[in-house]
Nucleic acid binder design. Structure first.
Length: 523
DNA sequence: CTGGGGAGGGGGCCC
DNA sequence: GGGGCCCCCTCCCCA
């Protein structure tokens, strides 16, 4: 009997131990799953917040545009009919000088019948002529062909207001409706931030912006303020870094700068390639919100930005133009140090920028929501295969080594397009040129343009014939170091790349790839 | 003549 | 800015 009791006791204790271990295991599993679920829920909630915010912003923007349209109607109707094309637009026109078929939005006063809608005009820029496809907007009238164009023009007003340039009496002081537009900076930054993190971040940042109206220091200047050229990363959050047009800005960017001042343009543009750069530039300008985190400054020059934002028929803008501080000019052309007298009229670049920008946004959207974004015929026309490849590569690289995958080195500066992380904002800026198509470095000998200065320098060896890399075995010389390295395999007989299917070996991976494509493509 | 491979040139991009 | 790697392209040679 006693044995039986002992046996039962032991059984009970064993059962208890087993039960406890089972419970512990279950708890562990539950905890793990719970953590995963919680993470997913958090992300979902974040996305929901982002979408909700975007919705609100869209509504806000619609209301704002409506108010501004009303305001503009009022302004235009009260303006004398002798509206002149300002010369300041020439900068933009020059940027698109060869862009036949490019679209440009003009605003003509309501009732002005001198021009017909979509009437091609010839812009004589001295260095050449170009036929431009002009989109005429009946300001204040019912024939607004491109609603977004209002967004192009609006921003100047609204940004003027935001920047508080004293010499430019903002329209808002005349029309209380404009006051509604004031919070747009915050909204706009949120709209284009791209990632949920960025949304929240940008919004917060924007709230902290306090423009003094006198801070016309360029973004470029601000960028170099930080130690070692890399501003310290504030906080621990990943920071999407926006493309900085002004850093390497050049004349032809003018064509894209139309409407850059209006962050709200971003979503006003559909997949119209002609419009896309505007939206893109808009995004890039928004970066200043982020950069300002480091510089404790604000973005102001962007609003008055650069030469010609469009055909200005607004006297308010005229005043602004006259009051652009000198430092601003330095800003706008800072990148010209790299230009080396390049041809700002390069049609290819304008076209390229347009298409690449389109492509970049397409990628961006496609990455975000591959289902909802469809590529229409116009979206793919003219897209550079090379850039497509580049973007694909970038995306692939982002997937491989993006910050989100957890690199050893801290890479908290995220590309706003592919989310790839970098340790330095300047590096991100350079990287983002993959997506934006910006190529600030142009060859003086030909029309080649490059996103990186090193590429330009290397390219120029084509013209100079410089071949600094010589083979010690045969005195052959090469312009690329890698070519020398490749060539050396001729002497060594090294063939490190073997086909896994047939065992054939190659000295270069590309040979192997070609071989496999040709021989084993059916696999 | 044709296809495969070698060699070299050039640009893109990251570190 | 430089180094390094990647990819693509073209030309040439040869079976």
């Amino acid at each position: 009997m006693a044995n039986c009791m002992v046996f039962h006791t032991q059984i009970a204790s064993i059962m208890e131990v087993l039960a406890n271990s089972a419970v512990a295991e279950i708890c562990k599993l539950v905890d793990d799953d719970y953590a995963v679920f919680r993470l997913e829920i958090t992300q979902s909630q974040k996305e929901n917040r982002t979408l909700r915010r975007k919705l609100q912003l869209q509504e806000l923007k619609v209301a704002r545009e409506r108010a501004e349209r009303t305001m503009r109607e009022r302004v235009l109707s009260s303006r004398p009919s002798s509206v002149k094309i300002l010369d300041r637009y020439r900068g933009t026109a020059r940027g698109e000088g060869h862009l036949t078929g490019g679209h440009r939005s003009f605003v003509k006063p309501a009732g002005h019948s001198t021009w017909r809608d979509d009437q091609p005009i010839t812009v004589d820029e001295g260095s050449g002529t170009s036929t431009q496809h002009v989109i005429m907007i009946e300001a204040g009238g019912p024939k607004v062909k491109r609603e977004r164009t209002e967004g192009e023009e609006d921003p100047r007003h609204s940004r003027d207001i935001q920047t508080g340039v004293p010499e430019a009496p903002p329209l808002s002081t005349e029309d209380p409706n404009t006051a509604k537009t004031q919070p747009r900076t915050q909204c706009s930054i949120t709209e284009v931030s791209g990632t949920p993190n960025a949304v929240l971040k940008s919004e917060t940042d924007t709230n902290t912006l306090t423009h003094t109206g006198s801070d016309h220091k360029s973004d470029t200047e601000r960028l170099v303020v930080g130690p070692l050229g890399c501003p310290p990363a504030p906080g621990s959050e990943y920071l999407p870094v926006f493309h900085q047009r002004t850093v390497h800005s050049h004349g032809d960017s003018d064509a894209l700068d139309t409407g850059v001042d209006d962050p709200s343009c971003s979503y006003a543009t559909e997949m119209d390639p002609g419009n896309m750069p505007l939206g893109l530039e808009t995004q890039t300008d928004l970066a200043r919100g982020d950069w300002n985190r480091y510089s404790s400054s604000v973005y102001s020059e962007g609003c008055l930005d650069k030469k010609g934002e469009g055909l200005v028929t607004d006297e308010v803008t005229v005043k602004v133009e006259g009051d652009i501080p000198q430092t601003w000019n330095a800003d706008s052309h800072l990148g010209d140090g790299h230009s080396q007298g390049r041809d700002f009229l390069d049609y290819r670049e304008s076209l390229e920028a347009t298409h690449v920008a389109t492509n970049s946004l397409l990628h961006m959207f496609r990455d975000r929501d591959p289902v909802s974004i469809s590529m229409g015929p116009s979206d793919s026309i003219g897209l550079s295969d090379q850039v497509l490849n580049s973007n694909d590569r970038a995306r692939a690289q982002a997937q491989r080594g993006g910050a989100t995958s957890g690199n050893v080195k801290e890479k908290r500066f995220l590309c706003m397009f592919c989310n790839k992380g970098f340790s330095c904002p300047q590096t991100v800026e350079v990287h983002q040129r993959i997506h934006t198509g910006e190529k600030p470095y142009s060859c003086t000998q030909c029309h080649m343009r490059f996103a990186q200065s090193g590429s330009l320098k290397r390219h120029q060896r084509v013209h100079t014939g410089e071949k600094p890399y010589s083979c010690p075995q045969c005195e052959k010389r090469f312009s690329h170091q890698h070519h020398l390295k490749t060539h050396l395999k001729v002497h060594t007989g090294e063939r490190p790349f073997a086909c896994t299917l047939c065992g054939k070996r190659f000295s270069e991976r590309s040979y192997l790839k070609i071989h496999q494509q040709k021989k084993h493509s059916t696999l």
